[in-house]
Design a binder for these strands. Structure first.
Lengths: 197, 197
DNA sequence: GTCTATAATCAGATAGAC
DNA sequence: GTCTATCTGATTATAGAC
């Protein structure tokens, strides 16, 4: 024990990413120093640079990994046929996926302004790709007449903002359970989409 | 001209607040230095401390001023009787009020984590006060049966997130005008509240 | 009220020993 | 791969002249 040196690439990598996500989410990217992150992980500051070329790249890699996981998970989701079922499935997927990724979603939506222009463009492309998944659903329901939507792009953004907003206040173990939250939001998303009640 | 010294309390104060809001919104509180802010205003860094005791207080004062303005403006709003009219009025008020305060709303909702615990508590009280204004409307409409709402607190948060989200993407002069945005969101808020179409 | 100058600390990133 | 040590520059905030 008390080993001060040695190779830990198999455990330090995940520890760094996990600690960085938590610290960036809680204090903000600019407010977290590499020294603080290193202390949290249990290494010296210099050791972090074996895992990332610089602080900016660390942030970008975390954000990109999150968006790619979202897109991948949604792609692997069982498909629905009817637009209304698709919309409900999207709501449930989004909420459940982010319940256990509070830090990820916080960083992904709050630290966009701390990305370099190039990294911002790359991440914005992924974000738009995800938003388009929702917009496609809205368009199909709009065509079939089951949704009353004036502008699918604006509606997709409104739905996204509402769903993502859950993570700014919901904490487990309070008065409401996760399934209760999910079903309430499924209903409210239907309302935004103009589904006749 | 080219006056390097002298008294400017009447103009430096507002200039500092305006520049701080813009910089904090664009780059984040932690990423903006007092030197950068001073340069933006056109003074030296030390001169800023004639207007604020420290950087934290500057942030808090900006956020508190914004929330108090929101509450004050909503209080001065002409009252409506019917819950549906109240809800529409709230949607219109919130959107229009924040159209010209993009920086303020960005700072107010993104920099909460950079407040000291004491300042956070104070601001959270104001934020909750505003949210309660909306919840009261939802409760009255719930009682009268014009709204189909399961949980007024959750619904108020959902509406807030959706309305506030406008400022993350809307810019003037694009395809959509402000009144168009307002009316679309008024409809979507009705949908969240379960108003039968 | 603003300036210049400075104190005291901390930032990101690197070099070389092990 | 991690450590210690360090470089270079930036940070908040203050002191005293004008």
């Amino acid at each position: 024990m008390a080993r001060k040196q040695g190779s830990h690439s198999d455990i330090s990598g995940p520890k760094i990413r996990k600690a960085a996500l938590r610290l960036f989410a809680q204090k903000g990217f600019a407010a977290v120093s590499m020294r603080e992150l290193a202390t949290e992980v249990g290494v010296q500051a210099g050791a972090l640079y074996n895992y990332t070329s610089d602080k900016q790249t660390l942030l970008f890699d975390l954000m990109r990994a999150h968006m790619e996981e979202v897109l991948s998970a949604w792609s692997a989701h069982p498909p629905e046929v009817a637009p209304l079922d698709q919309l409900d499935a999207f709501s449930r997927f989004h909420i459940n996926f982010h319940f256990d990724r509070a830090h990820e979603i916080f960083v992904a939506y709050m630290e966009l302004r701390n990305l370099t222009p190039q990294n911002f463009q790359a991440l914005e492309a992924l974000r738009r790709q995800y938003e388009t998944e929702l917009e496609v659903i809205l368009i199909s329901g709009q065509k079939s007449g089951v949704f009353q939507v004036k502008d699918t792009r604006v509606t997709a953004r409104a739905v996204s903002a509402m769903l993502t907003g859950i993570n700014t206040w919901y904490r487990d173990g309070k008065t409401l359970s996760r399934p209760e939250i999910v079903e309430m939001y499924v209903d409210m998303v239907r309302g935004i989409a103009g589904v006749r009640v």
